[in-house]
């Protein structure tokens, strides 16, 4: 057994006490294709956890199970102390307000302007805010991502990197406690990818969010990860810091760093 695998088997007591998200024995299969097989993960407050894995290894399936877009076959998912799998539709909608999700494809509503994209979740969930406060929050988030001037533009008028920033601003608009990033730098050039990674760290420090980041971009992983989990064969095959995993002698872990 490698040193990094030891870390999984001996969970830190203090860390579990601060956990904002706990996944236990999660299984998910599509027909005969087993994607997650007894997957376990703990995310602590203010922690950025990167889930590293090859394409098709089940990384996106994992975060879709967390947010309730997919139902796992068995196991448990506890988010902010609440069992997500036992929730009804209304309760799930409520917990989703406390979780942000950045899609790989950005998923900006293309029939709405940037302003309307950002206002959309607010208008539906925050009833006590007046128009001026909504406007202030939208401007604050756009300034965070350095794109205040795009407020009245349509998503189709923006570059890929700008769309990613707007999607990040929309993810943050309800000030979530946990953010799930699905391949945040995929499809971007290395410079824009680095900018997005820095922005993620900057915003995490500003709003004290905890994150799960799905990625196989090692520059992004290095920049943002407090903890890295290698998802192999549907399991959390190895867990540790970026440096610990980089030093691993396990061939399957070494492949990620080559």
């Amino acid at each position: 057994m490698t040193a990094v695998q030891d870390i999984i088997n001996q969970p830190n007591e203090t860390a579990v006490k601060n956990a904002v998200l706990e996944i236990k024995h999660l299984d998910k299969a599509f027909g005969g294709n087993v994607v997650l097989n007894d997957f376990n993960l703990v995310v602590n407050k203010d922690e950025n956890v990167v889930v590293l894995g090859r394409s098709g290894s089940g990384k996106s399936v994992l975060i879709k199970c967390i947010i309730g877009l997919l139902k796992p076959d068995s196991g448990s998912i506890s988010v902010l102390g609440e069992d997500v799998l036992a929730m009804g539709h209304d309760e799930l909608d409520h917990i989703r307000m406390r979780i942000g999700f950045l899609f790989q494809s950005n998923a900006l509503y293309d029939s709405m302007t940037v302003r309307e994209n950002l206002e959309f979740p607010m208008r539906r969930h925050i009833k006590h805010m007046n128009a001026e406060e909504v406007n202030e929050r939208v401007n604050e988030m756009l300034e965070n991502v350095g794109l205040a001037h795009t407020i009245d533009m349509m998503p189709s008028e923006l570059s890929g990197g700008m769309q990613k920033r707007i999607a990040l601003a929309r993810t943050l608009i309800l000030k979530p406690e946990i953010i799930l990033y699905d391949e945040p730098t995929s499809g971007l050039d290395p410079i824009t990818g680095r900018e997005i990674s820095s922005l993620m760290v900057e915003l995490q420090e500003k709003y004290h969010t905890s994150s799960i980041i799905i990625s196989h971009d090692m520059n992004c992983v290095k920049a943002v990860a407090d903890k890295v989990v290698a998802l192999i064969d549907g399991k959390a095959y190895a867990t540790g810091t970026y440096e610990e995993l980089k030093r691993s002698t396990d061939e399957r872990i070494k492949h990620f760093f080559e």
């Binding site: 989703r96 979780i99 509503y109 979740p121």
Partner: peptide, 9 residues
Amino acid sequence: DAMEVSGTN
């Protein structure tokens, strides 16, 4: 999916 995760039906 984005609409659903933002708590909108």
